[in-house]
């Protein structure tokens, strides 16, 4: 485990931001931290980045109690991006890298590599003010990873990126994962959760309401529903199966039905009842999307 968050409580004067939050964040994986606005994600991230301290509980970083020496092993890209506007890009990145413990020389070498790799050499002596928003985002991403942190915390990393740059960023994130970086990824955008995350945790109203590996969570939310495409007519009743919906498809001959299996009925039994009646063209289990899971869980826990 790169992070082991144990019973963390954070109270503000008017409300409790984190209420006994415990999470295990595995090494070398992408961990999605999900939750609606105001759920407590930012409070948790600020405790991990040691911007604030928890009122109760503790956090272990790679097995050790989280302390200021771990600052250099964490890279943090906050949701609200920002750089010194009146500073040159190169100097600024060197400064931020030095704050993360790199020597000036080391910082220059690594940054030059990044600038060559992303083909942005000509930005080095530009003032941040003169860069477009997307360019600033790229610059800030470099500042987050240049010290090669063990743990990378990305808060809504794709906001403000155009599709091409978003793709580039995604590739960089996956490349970092391949090199063993653990990534904590906080977002609202469920499609990037499906695409990138290995595990997730959902926080609502200051509490962890759902956690697990992505596929395992999805399995947990499977409603035992199957979508069947077929030709012909269903004439007999099906045992232990409820028909949820039935619709004609555009070409008139095909139909699409959704069945929900009752307890103790398996898909083979459904198939067995269908085959004598109709010509099956497609048979698949309906897997819930994270969008559905998110909405369902948040509504249940509100």
């Amino acid at each position: 485990m790169i992070l082991s968050i144990q019973d963390v409580v954070k109270r503000y004067s008017s409300h409790v931001a984190l209420d006994r939050v415990s999470l295990e964040i595995p090494k070398g994986k992408i961990f999605g931290l999900l939750g609606p606005n105001g759920a407590g994600k930012t409070s948790l991230i600020r405790i991990i980045t040691q911007i604030t301290a928890p009122d109760e509980g503790q956090i272990l970083f790679d097995g050790e109690k989280l302390s200021s020496k771990h600052v250099e092993q964490i890279g943090y890209l906050p949701e609200e991006r920002g750089l010194y506007k009146k500073m040159k890009v190169g100097e600024q990145l060197i400064y931020l890298a030095q704050l993360k413990g790199l020597s000036r020389q080391e910082a220059v070498t690594r940054l030059k590599d990044w600038f060559i790799r992303l083909d942005i050499k000509e930005w080095w002596d530009k003032q941040v003010d003169d860069l477009s928003k997307g360019m600033q985002q790229k610059t800030q991403f470099i500042s987050t990873v240049v010290h090669e942190p063990k743990l990378l915390i990305l808060d809504e990393p794709f906001s403000g990126f155009d599709p091409i740059n978003a793709n580039m960023l995604k590739d960089e994130i996956l490349a970092l994962k391949d090199r063993g970086t653990s990534i904590l990824f906080s977002t609202h955008r469920m499609e990037s959760v499906e695409e990138l995350c290995d595990s997730i945790a959902l926080i609502n109203h200051s509490k962890v309401v759902l956690t697990g590996e992505k596929d395992e969570v999805r399995n947990r939310f499977k409603a035992h529903q199957f979508e069947v495409l077929f030709e012909g007519d269903l004439t007999q009743d099906l045992n232990g199966v409820d028909l949820i919906s039935l619709e004609m498809l555009g070409n008139q001959s095909s139909k699409k039905a959704v069945f929900k299996l009752q307890e103790a009925v398996n898909p083979n039994q459904l198939l067995g009842q269908l085959i004598p009646q109709v010509q099956i063209q497609k048979f698949q289990e309906l897997i819930p999307s994270f969008n559905d899971i998110f909405i369902q869980v948040v509504n249940e826990t509100n």
Binding site: T49, S68, V71, P78, G82, Y84, K85, Q140
Partner: peptide, 17 residues
């Protein structure tokens, strides 16, 4: 004020106190 309004503050204080 510059650090706060440009929002760089959060990055900086994740590195130093």
């Amino acid at each position: 004020i510059e650090e706060k309004s440009s929002r760089i503050i959060e990055v900086i204080i994740s590195s130093i106190k």
